[in-house]
Design a protein around this nucleic acid. Structure first.
Lengths: 78, 78
DNA sequence: TGGCATGAGGTCTTATTAGACCTCGGTATT
DNA sequence: AATACCGAGGTCTAATAAGACCTCATGCCA
C-alpha cells in the first residue's frame, strides 16, 4: 500500500544514489564491497523498489564516501 | 541483532530529532499532527528505538518544516 | 569462442518497521 | 479533587526491509 507520492520519492532517491555511484565510477558490486550491502539490494534501491532505513542509508553513504545527509540532497517530486 | 555501533547512530539521530522538535516548541502530539506519525512512534524514534525508513524520515521533515537532509545533520558517533 | 564483469531480478527466512490504539505516572492548572 | 496535557512505553497485525544467495541476458575483450 505504497502511495504514488511515496513511490515518486523513492524513485528520485534511487536515481540520486545511482548518479552518485556512477560519478565515482563504481559498479554495483564494487560499491557493495565498500558498504556491506548486497549488490542486488543496491540495484533495487536505485530503482526505487526499496524504502531503505536510516542505518542502510548511513552504510550506503560510507561506501560512497560522502556524508549521509548528502544522500537526501535530491530534488523532491511534487 | 543490532550492533552497538548502529545503536549509537540511532541514538544520535534520535537526539537530533528531539532537539529539532523542541527548538520549535512542539510537543510529541503536536508534531504528530503535522506529519501523520503517531506520537508514541516519534517518542521511540527520539530514543533511538526505531530504525526509521526514508519515507518516514521525509514525513518527519515535513512536520518539522525542514529539508529531509537536515535530519541527517547530526554528529555521527565514533 | 570462451571468459568475465555488469545490471537486473528472483527466492527464501527472519527481523523489524509501520500503523493504530491504549495505558500509565507525572505535572501543571483550575 | 478534577481536568488536561505531557512523555514514555505496551500491544497487536500486516507489510516489508534486511540479508544472503542464485540466475540470466548482455556486452566486452582477449
Amino acid at each position: 500500500m505504497i502511495s504514488k507520492k511515496d513511490k515518486a520519492i523513492l524513485l528520485k532517491f534511487g536515481a540520486h544514489v545511482k548518479q552518485l555511484r556512477e560519478d565515482r565510477g563504481l559498479s554495483l558490486r564494487e560499491l557493495s564491497y565498500g558498504c556491506n550491502i548486497d549488490n542486488s539490494k543496491i540495484s533495487k534501491i536505485e530503482q526505487g523498489m526499496i524504502n531503505v532505513t536510516v542505518l542502510t542509508l548511513v552504510e550506503l553513504a560510507t561506501g560512497l564516501d560522502i556524508s549521509p545527509n548528502e544522500l537526501l540532497n535530491f530534488r523532491r517530486p511534487g
